[in-house]
Design a binder for these strands. Structure first.
Lengths: 231, 231
DNA sequence: TGGTTGACTCGTACATCGTACCATACGATG
DNA sequence: CATCGTATGGTACGATGTACGAGTCAACCA
């Protein structure tokens, strides 16, 4: 529905030069998709998924609630756009071609994971259909790198999904268990109270002392070992 | 809050034998946590996450809405209980000790994945804190199996989380992309329209022809290769 | 016997949400 | 001036989660 969502131009005036306060009365730049999405991300960072409300979003933007709906179809739309916007890819730090394809893949995936951990709400938004241009771009980049590294076309999809699953799984897991210290303490108490039922995970302090970064790196290495061309 | 959530007894009467319709007037067995959770799972299966409403749940149970709140603290509570209840573990099919630790691990994890895929909403509930007794039980079982297989204590947490991440990641991914055929067609169209931007993933038909089960199995094998004791 | 208590049920009410509908304003174009 | 597309936003509606408190009923004690 809706024939809206046109080019979404940011500014509009390039004609004459009016020294008076015509372009921006200061305080309320005009609404735009970009501004809406950026503010939504701010709100999500500050208040979490449940904290994002169309009314609160409009307040932060200094606009009426219904004005948002000219730029956006629904709240779901805002979620999709926010998720994708957070996954914009800066590209590799140095422009030169890296020596090792493996290093490049690791870099791409670690940046991916870091982007999502920077915005913990993104993990809980994942299970919805999420195929914005930035996500697709990252998939394409990963795909191209693997292909260039010599992974056979027949194995390409398996490789991509395995790596994607690893990133998503570890992000979701970490976001779930990195909540508040109170929650963690409560979980530990619950666990200790029934320690006779869960002796092994209690002994290994699974929920307390886990090294998320190390686990991610190690699991990734194992996957890459298996996926490597000419195993 | 709330000192409720007592023993939650199912029946109440074991005194005399009244042949009249005293125990169940047929049609409305008394409310109980078990019945609430079971009905919530039904509703989630039928209508998805957004379909679960306290009012709808009460309707299905033939009770008033607020009656639910005597057994349950909040709607979040219902979600937590439903998620955990779906992950009850039946145990290995045959009682005998399996010959191979690896086979046992694979069995545990495939059953785990299958349980979640049977209730697709469970994937989208995951990113919340989710540590019910059944999930903990599965973690404990996995942990014990790995430990018994000779995985060193120092590597145990890494192994558990890597495998957990693999299950969760592939479940979330599959649930995201196995939506409706319409959605898939729309995504494909969007992709084709910009095929010049995503040539590799379009050529590999990443979004269309993926073998989810095979990917899961292959990734799992790679992880187990890496995690195997005495590599 | 009658009163009290605690487990359990539920109708009403309220704040808050997403958003449909409609009135408005404004710059550009006829 | 009339018209139109772009853009804004006030009001209102239906749905939601749940606080509150009144209700029922069995069991127990006086």
């Amino acid at each position: 529905m809706a024939a809206k969502r046109s080019g979404a131009q940011g500014k509009r005036s390039q004609p004459g030069e009016l020294p008076e306060a015509v372009p921006e009365p200061r305080g309320e730049p005009p609404l735009s998709l970009e501004r809406i999405v950026a503010t939504a991300v701010e709100l999500l960072d500050a208040q979490g998924v449940d904290g994002l409300t169309m009314r609160r979003l409009a307040d932060r933007l200094g606009s009426g609630v219904m004005s948002l709906y000219w730029h956006v179809d629904s709240k779901e739309d805002v979620f999709d756009l926010a998720l994708d916007s957070v996954l914009e890819y800066g590209g590799p730090p140095q422009a030169c071609e890296p020596q090792d394809w493996r290093e490049e893949v690791v870099g791409v995936l670690e940046d991916w994971r870091a982007s999502m951990l920077r915005h913990p709400w993104s993990a809980s938004l994942l299970p919805r259909r999420a195929l914005g241009p930035n996500i697709l771009g990252r998939l394409e980049l990963l795909s191209k790198t693997l292909s260039g590294a010599g992974v056979a076309d027949a194995d390409l999809n398996v490789a991509i999904w395995s790596l994607w699953n690893h990133v998503m799984g570890s992000t979701v897991t970490r976001a779930s268990f990195e909540l508040s210290d109170d929650d963690r303490a409560a979980a530990q108490q619950r666990l200790a109270r029934r320690s006779e039922r869960y002796p092994t995970i209690e002994r290994s302090r699974l929920l307390l002392d886990s090294d998320w970064d190390g686990t991610f790196r190690k699991g990734l290495d194992f996957l890459l070992d298996g996926l490597a061309p000419r195993g």
